[in-house]
Amino acid sequence: MAVVFEKTELLTDLPMHYCPGCTHGIIHRIVAEALDELGIGKTAVGVAPVGCAVFAYDYFNCDMMEAAHGRAPAVATGIKRVCPDKCVFTYQGDGDLASIGTAEIVHAATRGEKITAIFVNNAIYGMTGGQMAPTTLPGQVTTTSPNGRDVEHCGYPVPMCEMLATLSGSAYIQRVSVHDVKHVKAAKKAIKNAFAAQMENKGFTMIEVLSTCPTNWGLSPLEAVQWLKDNMIPAYPLGVFKGAEA
């Protein structure tokens, strides 16, 4: 019998803990497939964050390190300096990368650290139960912005791709989404581009993936996908911010 589809070996068989309708599972899968297809997955080293993806080391079937909250780019730097020929990536959420870990991500980018950050932006703190994130949209209700994010009081969302693209050390920066099949395919291509750029020692690479959080947004999975399309993409435009698409 002909094999028409195989699950990538870069993911373990462990059942994932993510909520129904959450897009982390899709993002894990396209990251793993991208590594696999480039033939760099078996010897890759991943760094898991603190947040919903804290157990990423259980799912990615390669060497993994669990980092403290926000410090994944620093940990990845240490690994990459010891293993310069290996693919080193971080997998971080918006609280991890765009709030507590801003210093680490900015300086990894400005050093041109040859790592890839997979930045999952769902505009909320998922793991801790739906608090306001640095990427929470103006007016968006969370458990710590119960009347909606008031920009007069707590400022504006952080556009990480736009920020990091201004740094000379950044080689490839792209924002993608996974709300439908077409975008999932494009996201995988972007992730492959980033890994390829890393392996060509071009510099720092980051793919921001817009993601859903039905549980903490208080929406059904279908509604969440629609909400992402209607609200997040206008606020976080998709596209390549640095580097050329392969």
């Binding site: 390190m65 410090r71 730097t77 240490g78």
Partner: peptide, 18 residues
Amino acid sequence: AESELAAINMVYGAGGAG
């Protein structure tokens, strides 16, 4: 490093890599 926080986490990465 950009800070002591980053430095000790780079140590964690490098030490973890052996």
